[in-house]
Design a protein around this nucleic acid. Structure first.
Lengths: 351, 351
DNA sequence: CGATTTCATGTAATCGGTAACATTATCGCC
DNA sequence: GGCGATAATGTTACCGATTACATGAAATCG
């Protein structure tokens, strides 16, 4: 692999002149530039970024850690972040923490070692350790999607409390009273927040005894399936389910299917998050949609602003609005006839 | 940020001794080791990987380039690759090329500059330029999912020709003759191969005039929607659609929906690829399932074997088997009654 | 017990670039 | 024609780690 010295020799100049040509970091005559560029092309020369970064202290790479790379919500965030970053001349590397604090630590350490310019982090847990670590190494970090209380850090997310409140209120207004929450894990802020929104809505309707209706698992298909199985074994059964994310919802749908229960005829169901159009053949659940792409964009913008010193001194907290999308579940306890029609229609298309 | 020199000073030793403690690369007395480890912990020291890599020539990082990070097929591949890599002490960084040769070049250059140990590549096009580039820089590369003819390179993929042949034969055996192919772009091997499988099956049934039934777009929801709209404007309409991937299939389903056409009552449909269970509420299409996770695993294994010099000298080509999963579409032209029952049942669950 | 091996640690050079400073050539202008 | 300004290029040192080699001390041994 040729080095800058090899190129310099071939072009009959000194290494620093080659460096100037590459980075436009100093005056070079047309003639010399042409010779150097020819040498670079002939030798197929690529600057060694390890050496570059070592001297110049930082490289234009951003790290993005998400908790589940198979979840379209996070990959859509990744697209948003990448598009903004590319625009500003940064590259983005993705890492998958799999909701594991262990893996998160490993990848953060790796990124810090690599001297990346900044990090976009969906934290696995609400504890500040991970962010402390990054900040203590003077690497800028923006927290995405989830909260980490008690720490000074830029953050971009949606309003999980408000969104959950909207969904549950919707069910309550339809007449449901026994609403089960199929939630993510304790200690993950989006799960905790969705519980808080659920509780708030229930209290508003004068319901305070719901502890047996709250289930906690993980944000996964399997967990949604398992929690739904538990729910279906209880008596009296709830009349509605609130799935805390899209994977949980699909797991629950599968469990209902096994029990020959249909949504919303036999069970109402709402869900936080939804799949992008490209994946959901026919979305039918009432959901809170989060602007995932914009979330990624905003986070990358904020991080890059920090890096170029344009951001205000104070930490920023950006909260993007969610959208309530009312679908089939709305009809559940009110106009069941209408619902049946709708259900059949959708079914025929679907199948 | 403390350096190895700072740590050395604090521990009262030389930098090389610290290096020996970190890498277990030489004898160190118990007493010294303890002092050094204490200093490392106190100063929160993290070795600079740029400097490490610069000297030792290569870092234990693998690059993985996929063409669409939002496609669960590729993220599942990513999981497989990551799990194997972690096991062997490698980290994986993901890059999204968005089917763009331009972006692919940019990211490959970046990874080469970063001196990654090896690259797993889903090539955007069948041309060898990208792989030539990587190989010319002495970086090991394994090609994933797609083929690049006329070049010596390790490769892991599924049999697209065979899979497509199975799907189309299935439709032909059901009595369909006018089968439209909604394909990905020319020049992408998976698209070209699926066309080849389609042609082969058609020829076997004595059909040679199908040129007006072959559509070419991109592997996306929007393209699937548009191609289906074109198909639906033709007369006579085909009786069956073959979608070359999951996104195309969903786009086509949406177009059919708009025209109030149901699958398979009004139109039969099969599809290459399918969504993981966590995403597909209720899969209904007959599909060819590819072992995405295993694909990622095998590719990572092969790459790591190469890096550690364990692989045979000859290039390897691993082709994993696909599975035909027959669902609703099977009934389309034969036992329509049965189908209607099935369709309604699924619909009720679904909605 | 002196010589040789092994252990524990250190010194100097180096990886491939770039920052800071130095040098030489070119030019305009009073 | 001499002088400062600017352009074009080079020299040297250094970023933070590791490799190769060196040194001194302790241990082994005939």
């Amino acid at each position: 692999m040729p080095t800058i010295h090899d190129v310099a020799e071939r072009a009959g100049v000194s290494p620093i002149t080659v460096s100037r040509v590459i980075n436009s970091s100093g005056p070079v005559s047309e003639k010399t530039r042409a010779r150097v560029e020819a040498a670079i092309a002939e030798m197929n020369y690529v600057p060694n970024q390890l050496a570059q970064g070592l001297r110049s202290k930082r490289i234009k790479i951003l790290g993005l850690l998400v908790t589940d790379i198979t979840n379209p919500f996070f990959t859509t965030i990744a697209r948003g972040a990448e598009d903004v970053a590319s625009e500003a001349g940064y590259s983005v590397v993705f890492c998958n923490t799999d909701e594991s604090v262990e893996k998160e630590r490993k990848y953060l350490q790796l990124l810090v070692q690599q001297q990346v310019a900044g990090i976009l982090l969906v934290p696995a847990r609400s504890e500040p350790a991970a962010i402390d670590f990054v900040q203590s190494h003077n690497v800028q970090v923006v927290v995405l999607d989830r909260q980490v209380p008690g720490i000074e850090v830029d953050a971009v997310r949606c309003d999980s409390v408000g969104g959950a409140h909207q969904l549950v209120s919707h069910l309550l207004e339809l007449g449901h009273r026994r609403i089960a929450l199929l939630n993510g894990p304790h200690g993950v802020s989006t799960a905790d927040d969705r519980l808080a929104g659920y509780e708030h809505a229930m209290h508003e309707f004068g319901i305070h005894d719901y502890s047996d209706l709250v289930y906690s698992g993980s944000f996964s298909f399997v967990s949604g399936y398992q929690m739904a199985q538990q729910v279906l074994a209880t008596k009296p059964m709830p009349t509605a389910l609130f799935a805390a994310n899209n994977f949980i919802a699909n797991g629950a749908l599968n469990a209902l299917h096994e029990h020959n229960l249909s949504v919303p005829d036999d069970m109402a169901m709402v869900c936080f998050d939804e799949l992008p159009a490209s994946m959901a053949s026919f979305p039918v659940l009432t959901t809170i949609a989060q602007p995932a792409y914009a979330l990624g964009q905003e986070a990358a913008r904020l991080l890059i602003a920090r890096l170029s010193g344009e951001a205000p001194g104070q930490r920023q907290e950006i909260i993007l609005p969610t959208t309530l999308i009312v679908r089939a579940s709305r009809t559940s306890l009110l106009d069941r006839n209408d619902l049946c029609r709708l259900s059949e229609g959708a079914g025929m298309i679907q199948t």
